[in-house]
């Protein structure tokens, strides 16, 4: 595609982008502090004054809980973006033929059985994995609050989240679920970062930069353009919206 010109498509709202980076930051902090809480492998303040140990368990936990609140409330941005911008709604549409076709197409490509896949705003595999991550994050939030709120068993939080502990057959299981799901999120993150960079390299669609600018580039119209098309059925490249900007894909 080095010979063709790429069109700009405005996809992601600022709300989603801010959310994304808040999520990245909080998940990194949550995972690091969480691992420490699960297994305090270095005894930070042994031999020193307990109350002032900078890496003391209570401080680590404090950071963990603070990051958890940031992540949970960041979802407000995500939901708002979802409401106002079609590009933020690129979740799997299981009921469409396009989704299933795309799934096969992308999978074959990733298995090196097809040299390239069709251009998508978001391919079916990516859409599914993002939804899965939201589910995993929800599990983390629910199990996290189930443990967190039970410090006051008669409080409102415990009334709401406490039953999760008995539903899962005891709080030990809740700990283990919380712990294992955290690892699944990390595995996702590894693959996700790789896929984003790879896509940039393979397809030159601005995959990485889109999470800063909100804009992706396509030489050919993406197959799922309908998801962000105007109601009248016309496509809406970013260039049309912006009115005066033209951009040439790097090659």
């Amino acid at each position: 595609m080095h010979e063709g010109q790429s069109k700009e498509y405005y996809v992601y709202s600022p709300w989603l982008r801010i959310f994304h980076w808040l999520m990245v930051g909080s998940v990194v902090i949550l995972f690091a502090t969480g691992l420490y809480i699960g297994n305090p492998f270095f005894a930070a303040s042994r031999g020193s004054e307990p109350a002032f140990g900078p890496l003391a368990m209570n401080n680590i936990r404090y950071v963990h809980f603070a990051a958890a609140y940031v992540l949970v409330f960041a979802f407000i941005l995500r939901v708002y973006g979802f409401a106002v911008n079609k590009g933020d709604r690129l979740l799997p549409k299981f009921w469409t033929a396009l989704y299933w076709r795309g799934l096969v197409d992308t999978t074959l490509h990733y298995l090196f059985l097809r040299s390239a896949h069709e251009p998508y705003l978001r391919n079916s595999l990516a859409r599914s994995s993002y939804l899965a991550v939201y589910v995993l994050l929800a599990v983390e939030a629910i199990t996290g609050f189930a443990m967190y709120t039970m410090v006051n068993p008669n409080g409102l939080g415990a009334k709401f989240f406490g039953p999760v502990n008995s539903l899962l057959g005891g709080e030990y299981t809740v700990h283990i679920v919380h712990h294992c799901v955290a690892w699944l999120i990390v595995l996702f993150a590894i693959v996700h970062v790789y896929m984003a960079i790879r896509a940039d390299f393979m397809e030159r669609e601005g995959e990485v930069s889109s999470m800063f600018s909100g804009v992706k580039f396509y030489a050919h119209e993406p197959a799922d353009i309908g998801d962000i098309a105007d109601d009248n059925g016309t496509t809406c490249p970013a260039a049309d919206r912006a009115g005066h900007r033209q951009h040439t894909a790097q090659g």
Binding site: P40, A43, A44, S45, R46, P50, A51, G53, L55, A56, M57, N58, I60, R61
Partner: peptide, 8 residues
């Protein structure tokens, strides 16, 4: 308190 202080 020893948990909170990271003393195990």
């Amino acid at each position: 308190p020893f948990f909170d202080a990271g003393m195990f």
